[in-house]
Design a binder for these strands. Structure first.
Lengths: 184, 184
DNA sequence: GGCGGCGTATACCGATCGTTCTATCTACCG
DNA sequence: CGGTAGATAGAACGATCGGTATACGCCGCC
C-alpha cells in the first residue's frame, strides 16, 4: 500500500507534465509534482535528458493500441478500424494535446538527444504492429500498407491539435478502409 | 540595392531560426542573426510572442503550395498529386525539420499565445485550397475530401521527421489518388 | 537648422534554466 | 547495535531567458 519509489514517481510526473506542457517543463516542476528530492533525479537518470528519454520508452502508448485492437476482436480489419474509432474519441477530448512522441521529436532540436532514438523505436514498433495485422489480413504489401496506416495515424494526431472539430479520425478511417480493402 | 529594414530582417531571421531550432530559440540569437538592435524588436512586434505570430502569418508556405499546383497545370487531379510529389522531395532533404505550424502549435503550451490563431488560420486556408480543387474536380464531398487531404499532408510532414526513409509522401500519394477518384 | 523619429549599442533587471553541492535523515542488513 | 546505501531538504552555481532602460548617431522634414 506504500507509494511507489522515487524513480517511478519521477517517471509518472514527467510523463504527465511533459504531455501537458511539453518537454520544456522545468525540472523544478517535475520534482515538485513527483515529490522527490532533486538529487534522486540525477541519481536515477543522470539528468533531465535521461528522464525524458526514459519517460518516452516507458510511456506504454503502444500497449494501449494493442488493448484497443484486442477489444475489437480477432478480425484484422475490425482491429485496425477500431484504432481510428478510438482516435476520434481521444482527439476530441479537452485533455488531448497531440502525440507526445511527435511533440518531443519536434521540440528537441539537438540531434544527439537520447529521446530521438526512443521516438524512432516507438514508431518502428507501431509499424510492425500494423504490418502484422495487414499480413494476417492477406494484404498484398503489408509494409507499404503499414506506412499508409502510420501516415494516417500521425496525420490525425497532428491535425486534430489545430482542427479537432474537423474530426480527422473519421476522414482517416475512410482511407484506412481503402488500405484494408486492397485486392489480395 | 540597400538591405531590407529591421522589420523584414527580423522576420527573415525569426523564420529561419524558429524553423531550424524551434520557437524556443532565444531572442538574442534572432537579434544577432538579423543584425538588429534589441529595441527594434519590441518597437515593431511588441515582444517575442508578436514576432513569432507575425512570422507564421507571413511565412508564405501556402503560396508555395499554390506554386507547385500551378506548375502542374490545370487538371485538379494532377495539381493535388503534384503536392505529394513535392512533399516527397521536401521531406527527404536534410534541411527538413517538419511542419513549422504543427511544431509551433505543439511547442506553445499557453492557449492564449497569438501564434495559435495563425496556425488555425493557415490550416483553414489550406483546407479551402484543397476544397476548391476537389470542387473543380467534381468531388462528391469536397469538404470531407479536403479533410482527408489535410490529414495526409500533416501525416506526411509529421511522420517524415522520424522516418523519412519510409517515404510517407509516396504512401500518402496512393491514398490521395483514392480521394480524387471518388465516383462523382 | 534644429528637432523629432528611428535605429544602434550596451548595460541591466528579475526570473528561471539545468546542475552540483553539503548536510541530515531513514531504512535495511549483518 | 553499527554501518551503509538511498532518500530528503535546501543552498548555491553559472548561464540564459524575455524585457526594460539609458545614451548616442543618423536622417529627413517641417
Amino acid at each position: 500500500m506504500s507509494r511507489p519509489g522515487p524513480r517511478e514517481r519521477l517517471l509518472q510526473a514527467a510523463s504527465d507534465l511533459t504531455y501537458e506542457q511539453g518537454v520544456h517543463v522545468g525540472v523544478d516542476a517535475i520534482l515538485k509534482e513527483a515529490d522527490v528530492a532533486r538529487r534522486s533525479l540525477y541519481q536515477h537518470f543522470g539528468g533531465k535528458d535521461g528522464l525524458i528519454a526514459e519517460t518516452l520508452r516507458g510511456a506504454g502508448v503502444e500497449a494501449r493500441y494493442r488493448q484497443v485492437m484486442d477489444d475489437a476482436g480477432d478480425d484484422p480489419r475490425e482491429r485496425v478500424l477500431a484504432v481510428f474509432d478510438e482516435l476520434d474519441k481521444i482527439t476530441t477530448r479537452p485533455s488531448f494535446h497531440g502525440c507526445r512522441y511527435t511533440a518531443a521529436e519536434l521540440a528537441l532540436t539537438d540531434p544527439a538527444h537520447p529521446a530521438h532514438a526512443e521516438v524512432r523505436a516507438y514508431k518502428d514498433r507501431l509499424h510492425r504492429l500494423f504490418e502484422d495485422e495487414l499480413r494476417r489480413h492477406r494484404h498484398p504489401a503489408p509494409g507499404f500498407g503499414a506506412d499508409q496506416i502510420l501516415v494516417l495515424v500521425d496525420g490525425v494526431l497532428a491535425h486534430a491539435v489545430t482542427r479537432p472539430d474537423a474530426h480527422p479520425a473519421r476522414a482517416a478511417r475512410a482511407l484506412a478502409e481503402v488500405v484494408l480493402d486492397q485486392p489480395r
